[in-house]
Simulated scan of single mutants.
Amino acid sequence: MNINDIAKEVFEIEAREIANLSKNLTAEFEDAVKAILKCRGKLIISGMGKSGIIGKKIAATMASTGTPSFFLHPGEAYHGDLGMIERDDIVLLISNSGETDEVLKVVPFLKAQENIVISMSGNPDSTLAKNSSYHLNISVKEEACPLQLAPTSSTTATLVMGDALAVALMKLRDFQDRDFAQFHPGGSLGRRLLTKAEDVMQKENLPIVGDNESIKEIVQVVSSGKMGLAIVMSGDDILGIITDGDIRRAMESNQEEFFLLKARGLMSKNPKTVDAKSKLTEVQKMMTDYKVNSLLVCEDKRLLGIIQIYDLGI
């Protein structure tokens, strides 16, 4: 059998099972979401084996999208870590069969402490489902595994159900990109949303020329500045900007008089500027809107530096 055909068959089987997952939705999904929204504690997720691995991902997604959450191994919980679960917490237990011994062993404690228990299983009549406050059905008809043994479609269904919970909570909380960035300060999104232009701008040895500078001096400044441009200034006043593109175009259109040009005759007036306090997302939007790769960073019309597209980390 062709290897690519095997892959396509896996895609088709799992896609079909995910498409059927919506048929398993009941009012308990909505009730579970509302319970998590009202929760004053954390959402603790637990599961064994492959379900546990998926549970860790769901917990990570929840934690980064506004729902305080962490993963607790059921075996470790039963051997001393149940103390991590407080009365105000909601516990999400995952077991495809709904009969996983390690998972079921923590249920009596949760009932005694009166925690809300949300379960995910492929069997609505399982022991786990019957002992849950809300049950989310993740049953699939066919695993992608040809032996119907390795969890494949079922773990994908579990992951998608977890994503559905997380996205529903995000939308109901009106969770925005800036909120997301607060939990991802080290990522590219966090960087662009939280970092300001003044934090990444280039401010040392700026390529500055006077308005009467010769073309030879301008070329030297552009070359040594390694930014592809020169800023034309008179004292503290910004008069214009000259890019290496401006120099090439002037060379083509003014061949005979090229070496007689001065900065004032070559510069583009009113260069695009950005406030020093602008977030990188705003800088990126300006660059996109104006189709430029560089902006002058200013404060009260005073030049502070230059920010280029390469400084955005995108």
Score class of each variant (00 low, 15 high):
residue 293 N to K: 10
residue 120 M to I: 07
residue 95 S to R: 02
residue 238 I to P: 02
residue 6 I to V: 01
residue 53 I to W: 10
residue 253 S to F: 09
residue 184 H to N: 06
residue 76 E to Y: 09
residue 300 D to W: 04
residue 193 L to F: 14
residue 71 F to M: 10
residue 186 G to I: 08
residue 71 F to N: 12
residue 217 E to R: 15
residue 49 G to P: 04
residue 69 S to R: 13
residue 160 V to P: 02
residue 288 T to N: 13
residue 196 K to R: 15
residue 207 P to K: 15
residue 257 E to A: 03
residue 247 I to G: 02
residue 279 K to C: 06
residue 236 D to P: 03
residue 19 A to K: 15
residue 207 P to M: 12
residue 166 A to F: 03
residue 270 N to C: 00
residue 235 G to V: 04
residue 145 C to I: 00
residue 65 T to H: 06
residue 111 K to S: 07
residue 154 S to G: 01
residue 26 T to G: 11
residue 74 P to T: 07
residue 231 I to H: 12
residue 252 E to N: 07
residue 208 I to R: 05
residue 308 Q to E: 07
residue 283 V to I: 14
residue 173 R to K: 15
residue 13 I to Q: 05
residue 291 K to R: 15
residue 220 Q to D: 14
residue 205 N to F: 12
residue 89 D to K: 13
residue 115 N to D: 12
residue 264 R to V: 03
residue 269 K to I: 08
residue 114 E to H: 15
residue 22 S to M: 07
residue 45 I to N: 10
residue 197 A to C: 09
residue 104 L to T: 05
residue 226 K to H: 08
residue 156 T to N: 07
residue 294 S to A: 11
residue 40 R to A: 11
residue 231 I to D: 08
residue 110 L to E: 12
residue 118 I to F: 10
residue 1 M to R: 06
residue 28 E to M: 09
residue 50 K to Q: 05
residue 157 A to L: 04
residue 117 V to I: 15
residue 145 C to N: 04
residue 188 S to T: 15
residue 181 A to G: 11
residue 52 G to M: 11
residue 217 E to K: 15
residue 67 T to Q: 06
residue 54 I to H: 12
residue 82 L to Q: 14
residue 97 S to E: 00
residue 6 I to Q: 08
residue 52 G to S: 09
residue 227 M to W: 01
residue 112 A to T: 08
residue 55 G to A: 12
residue 131 N to V: 01
residue 36 I to M: 10
residue 46 S to G: 09
